Amino acid sequence: MKQIQLGSSGLTVSAQGLGCMGMSTTYGPSDEQESLATLARARELGITLFDTAEVYGPFSNEKLLGKAFASTRDRVVLATKVGFKFDAAGALEMVAGRPVVSGKPAHIQAAVEGCLQRLGTDYIDLLYLHRIDPSTPIEETIAALAALVKQGKIRYIGLSEASPVTIRKAHAVHPVSAVQIEYSLFERGVEHNQVLATTRELGIGFVSYSPLGRGFLSGALNDLSSLASTDFRRFDPRFQGENLRINLRLVDGITKIAAAKGVTPSQLAIAWTQQAGTVPIPGTRRVKYLEENAAAADLILTEEELQALNDIAPFGAAAGERYAPAMMETLGH
């Protein structure tokens, strides 16, 4: 897989990364040996960017990656995220059903130390603020991260789910190398809220998480009956009732375009995010789907195909919010 520059800060990554969250949480039970085999195969395919976070598990996903890359640390780009708060027992702190976010320097510094320990490394290639704390000036948080860059504990700084105003304020303190936000044929909000335009203006790389719409765009998910009881999609607004029926019609249209091109819906959706100038990080824990996704790295869509996809899946076509109301409140600060 080709390697590209993520933004203009000097960070080189594979054209497609691997989202590792599902190996430890969110989508039901997983198997560690299967996950390790998938991570090893990703390296063989030339994938170098691996995305995790302290909250995935919590903590177990970072430990998994630390184990997987203990002997190949210098050949991978490890991206992790901090910002959520945990109680003394290691559980996510919640208030009124909403996870508690902290951008206070002391919290961020302690969180980074935990990430380093779990990843089994003395530096993090790309450290994101997972969510923005509206009660702490972003300038203070970024200054704390900049100090960690000077100490060699972080190489590059990123933001996740940040507004254009926050991106600009952060970038003025220290160069922001990447912004990570959900982006797909299913979710095109960043095209209309100035986030994508802001990153391009400032030379910041854009990383698309959930490029397959939480698996929806694979075309394989028609109802919720096959999902594990702990799979969060059972409670995702876009998978409920009338929203599900509307969104399945959207997927049907995408599937027809994929069939005409001789590729899978997943490959078509991933290629679309790449051609939009972003680095997608589709998540999977199985080698079969990893290989299918990776094959999209060199796929080029024609102008006619791009127009057809725009006609079928324009901004706002998907029914339902991205998350439940409490989680929606953590976005876009």
Rank of each mutant, 00 (worst) to 15 (best):
K2M: 13
I4M: 05
Q5A: 13
L6C: 07
G7I: 00
S9W: 00
G10R: 06
G19F: 00
T25P: 08
G28T: 00
S30N: 14
A40Q: 12
E44P: 09
E44T: 12
T48F: 11
N61D: 03
G66E: 07
F69I: 02
V76A: 05
V77L: 08
L78E: 04
A79L: 11
G83I: 07
L92N: 09
L92V: 15
A96I: 03
A96R: 13
R98V: 05
V101W: 02
K104F: 12
P105M: 14
A106Y: 10
Q109F: 06
A111P: 06
T121N: 09
D122K: 11
D122F: 07
H130N: 14
H130P: 07
D133Y: 02
D133I: 01
I138V: 12
E140L: 11
A143L: 10
K153T: 06
K153Y: 06
I154L: 10
Y156L: 02
A162S: 15
P164K: 13
V176Q: 02
A178H: 03
Q180Y: 03
I181T: 15
I181S: 15
E182N: 01
R188N: 03
H192V: 14
L196M: 14
T199A: 03
G205T: 04
P211C: 01
P211H: 00
F216P: 05
S218T: 15
A220L: 14
L221T: 01
S225V: 06
T230P: 11
D231Q: 05
F232W: 14
F232L: 04
F239I: 00
L250G: 11
D252G: 13
D252A: 13
G253V: 02
K261R: 15
Q267C: 09
L268E: 06
A271V: 07
Q274L: 15
A276I: 07
A276Q: 15
G277C: 07
P280I: 00
V287Y: 08
L290K: 09
A295N: 10
L301R: 08
L301K: 12
T302N: 10
Q307W: 10
N310W: 08
P314N: 13
G316T: 04
A317E: 05
A317Q: 10
A317I: 01
A318K: 00
A319P: 03
R322I: 01
Y323W: 01
P325G: 00
A326D: 12
M327H: 10
T330N: 07
